[in-house]
Computed example of a mutant assay.
Amino acid sequence: MSFKKLKSQVEEIIGGGTSVEGRLTAICELLQENVDYYDWVGFYFKNGNKEELKLHSFAGEPTDHTIIPFGKGICGQVAVSNENFVVPDVKAQDNYIACSINVKAEIVVPLFVDGENIGQIDIDSHTADPFSKEDEEFLEWVNKKVARIVG
């Protein structure tokens, strides 16, 4: 499915009447089911006043990594850098936390509310180097929409 078609479905989910958690899970499931190389999709958010991220909603295989300290792994690095992080080959990253032996690539895009990085969308792929600038722009757009309901 094209990102254009996915955008309209994300808009529908954002405007839905279910809980925030339900809408975030629905977005994760939509992306994981409709983008061939999005094998795991999740939202991590800052865990209160702690310097760590906590897994909120996801689609894909369950993970043991429900808490990630700032600076650790790709997600933890994005929590500190406030910048997108595209990893074409996870084996080439020294500071990578392996969630599954099948993961070959990862993209993490921070989620901002009022200029503050409050979380991120994290996508793992079993395909090597699948992410393009189009993926980054789409995920930035998704996070802007999500910011409206989590802010």
Rank of each mutant, 00 (worst) to 15 (best):
M1W: 06
M1A: 15
K5R: 11
K5T: 14
K5C: 07
E11W: 03
E12Y: 07
E12I: 11
I13Y: 10
I14L: 12
I14C: 09
G15W: 06
G17K: 11
S19D: 08
S19F: 07
R23K: 13
R23I: 01
L24T: 06
L24A: 05
T25H: 15
I27D: 00
I27K: 03
C28Y: 00
C28Q: 01
L30H: 02
Q32F: 03
Q32L: 04
Q32P: 00
E33W: 12
N34V: 00
V35P: 04
V35S: 07
V35Q: 10
D36M: 10
Y37S: 08
Y38F: 12
Y38W: 07
W40M: 04
W40E: 00
W40T: 10
F43R: 03
G48I: 03
K50V: 05
K50F: 14
K50S: 14
E51P: 05
E52L: 04
L53S: 04
L53D: 04
L55G: 03
F58M: 12
A59T: 06
P62D: 08
P62S: 12
T63I: 10
D64L: 05
D64W: 05
H65A: 13
P69S: 14
P69Y: 08
F70K: 09
F70G: 01
G71C: 02
G73S: 06
G73M: 09
G76T: 13
V78S: 14
A79Q: 14
V80K: 09
S81C: 02
S81A: 01
N82H: 13
N82G: 14
N84A: 10
V86A: 02
V87F: 07
P88G: 05
K91N: 15
K91Y: 06
K91I: 04
K91G: 13
Q93G: 10
Q93M: 08
N95D: 02
N95R: 04
Y96N: 03
A98Q: 12
C99N: 14
I101W: 08
N102T: 10
V103L: 14
K104A: 08
A105N: 02
E106S: 00
P110G: 03
P110W: 09
L111S: 02
F112T: 08
V113L: 06
G115H: 08
Q120I: 07
I121T: 03
I123D: 02
S125E: 01
H126Q: 11
T127S: 03
P130F: 04
S132P: 12
K133H: 14
E136G: 02
E136Y: 00
E136V: 11
F138M: 05
L139P: 00
L139W: 00
L139V: 02
W141F: 08
V142K: 05
R148F: 08
V150R: 03
V150H: 04
V150W: 04
G151S: 13
